[in-house]
Design a protein around this nucleic acid. Structure first.
Lengths: 380, 380
DNA sequence: TTGAAAGCGGTACCAG
DNA sequence: CTGGTACCGCTTTCAA
């Protein structure tokens, strides 16, 4: 019934030539009808082409189209772990915004492996993606700056662009866009919340020592302690990976070694969940005996009992913002032809404390409001 | 410093021709060196090419390569919602297996919108993806079968393939692969667990009435009731969307209308979480006063207090299995040239109950082991 | 308005 | 072994 030719063993895809032939017009005309070119085409030709397209269920070959110059812009999202709720939300934001703009999105997971990250960046470069978005905190050691700068430049060289989301911005004149949240202020506010509720012995579980986000959260907490004139006790600081087990183990150990803490300042909601379990296992109640706070405000936070007081990070919005930033950039780059000024952009979104039921006043102290919500834009 | 020509306003990407020229060899040689062709190439040429590639930071153009026939196979994953934990796990499985085989993965989200689903399938067809994987339960109304059959055929026509994961298989000779789990048996086992623990008044919250997975879960439960000779009371059945609010509202209402239930059989872990909150809000303890079970076994299940007894669904494995199925299929299709026999495949993975702490014996009844773990393969 | 033909960047076949 | 070149499928001048 169909005229498709079968070349050897595979069904040959219907091409624009097949359509042209069957419609009795030239391929140029078919292209003009289908590519949304505003070039004049008679209605007869147009309708005849459309009819054949429907009959043959034809779709244009995206690769050929890209080669010829008019491809769909694609954004590549590189994640460490798809199942991490926070990352999934950023990805959702990027993907949603991409779709809205008619962009396509590719996803790759690195599993925290630098080798794989490099391979993926290269792969995306081959794909000619419009932008590569790297998600999540970065480990500070082994030349993160250099590594990213290299990525940024090699992507820039092929007309692509690097976007860092939730990662530290790059120093110097590196062609990359950073979308970040006010990590440290969030931690400052959260710790302040605990301190103003009268807590003084606070078990602090910021996360992995080398991870940029964990460092920021720790710094924020220390600044809050300082502001309240409370000495920071290193004995109450325990670092470890962002997972439940860490929260559990840290509390468990602290219960033996420094059992006088009245609150746990966790570096993430997941860690808080682990901490909560450890407290329960020890027969302690939350928040009656010990208060707990989290960070991230992923859905889990409100599913726990008691619901977790935590720091809200606008993950999905960051994803959206990131995509819009590159998309706009791309548009204006087309107009201005050559970049005139600086090439790096740094967007910072605000965070704020969400008060739920996992914190209880320990004594009476002046209460301080510590909600930060700012959207700063720093171009350099 | 670099020899890249700047055409008008955009940086021209380094091409294979640039490399050839600079290395003083032909493009054919460069291609042979880079495309992994096992064609003989002298070491001198090879090393000279590699050197230039490094100097120029050259990467091949994936679109051109695809056009020429030797592109990277790509799998498209279409999800309703990236942030749903279960889907994220399937996606992870697919992505991981794809990577392992050197495949690329594209992700698109449909937001439960059929229009968008159609648009995406078309888009993927344009991209010439090797397979399109559709994730998650399907709504049974408005000709799901017809719709999917159409997708399957149109993908098949361009040499692609439809894969349904966690969705009902297609009837008739439709070219599609289905990877499913034993949904109904899981529900049967879970309900049986509750029944054998002595519960008789069980509030059943399977999920949305029209969703295939919810239907299966309800059927499984009913069969278990039957097997135990317990009449199924429709007054204890409440349907609704798979979310926390539904679980909360349903329990809340039941507490007023049919407060004699001793257990809640939730259609998903999320729903169970909502149910748990409603019980707590009413001053009831879990599991002392009321037992709860979930379904899915997402991480949340073990993060709740008490940890949730639930049905484990091998989501990530399903994703892996799905990818391997299409990949293998593709390989053999190349060898056999033309399909010889039937074209549809249906893989079913097993589910099993994970006993944790949210269920308590109500009276004493003979205990029944109800763990199902089978991997059935039905080719037709 | 329409059609013919020149690329876009690679791959692979065919001569040397 | 190496180089020349005919495609792959589509977009876009350039003429007609």
């Amino acid at each position: 019934m169909s005229q498709r030719k079968t070349t050897g063993d595979a069904v040959a895809r219907v091409t624009i030539r097949d359509v042209a032939e069957r419609a009795g017009v030239s391929v140029a005309s078919v292209s003009r009808v289908l590519s949304g070119s505003n070039y004049p085409v008679s209605d007869t030709v147009r309708s005849r082409v459309m009819q054949v397209v429907r009959d043959l269920d034809y779709v244009t070959n995206a690769h050929a189209r890209s080669l010829a110059g008019m491809g769909t812009p694609t954004v590549a999202i590189l994640i460490n772990n798809v199942t991490a709720a926070a990352f999934a939300h950023i990805a959702k934001g990027v993907e949603g915004a991409a779709t809205l703009r008619g962009w396509l999105s590719l996803v790759g997971t690195t599993g925290d492996d630098p080798e794989r990250e490099l391979a993926l960046v290269d792969l995306m470069r081959q794909q000619g993606v419009a932008a590569v978005v790297l998600l999540g905190g970065a480990y500070d050691h082994d030349g993160y700056q250099l590594r990213m700068a290299r990525f940024a430049r090699s992507l820039d060289a092929v007309g692509s662009h690097l976007v860092l989301v939730g990662r530290p911005p790059l120093q110097g004149d590196v062609p990359a866009t950073t979308v970040d949240y006010d990590n440290e202020s969030g931690a400052y506010a959260m710790a302040g919340h605990l301190l103003s509720a009268g807590h003084r012995r606070i078990l602090t579980l910021p996360g992995p020592a080398e991870l940029s986000t964990a460092q920021g959260r720790l710094n924020g907490a220390r600044r809050a302690f300082e502001a309240y004139g409370v000495p920071f006790d290193r004995g109450l600081l325990r670092q470890g990976p962002y997972d439940e087990a860490y929260g559990y183990a840290a509390v468990d150990a602290a219960l033996h070694e420094t059992p006088d803490f009245t609150a746990v300042l966790a570096g993430s909601d997941i860690v808080a969940a682990g901490a909560m379990q450890a407290l329960r296992a020890a027969g302690l109640r939350v928040p009656e005996d010990v208060s707990i706070t989290g960070y991230d405000d992923i859905p889990l936070a409100s599913q726990l009992t008691p619901q977790l007081t935590t720091v809200h990070v606008p993950y999905e919005e960051m994803g959206r913002v990131a995509l819009h930033a590159v998309a706009d950039r791309r548009k204006s780059a087309g107009a201005e032809a050559r970049r005139t000024g600086p090439n790096a952009e740094h967007l910072v979104l605000g965070t704020h404390v969400v008060v739920r039921n996992s914190v209880r006043s320990s004594k009476r102290y002046p209460r301080v409001t510590a909600s930060v919500r700012t959207a700063t834009k720093v171009s350099r």
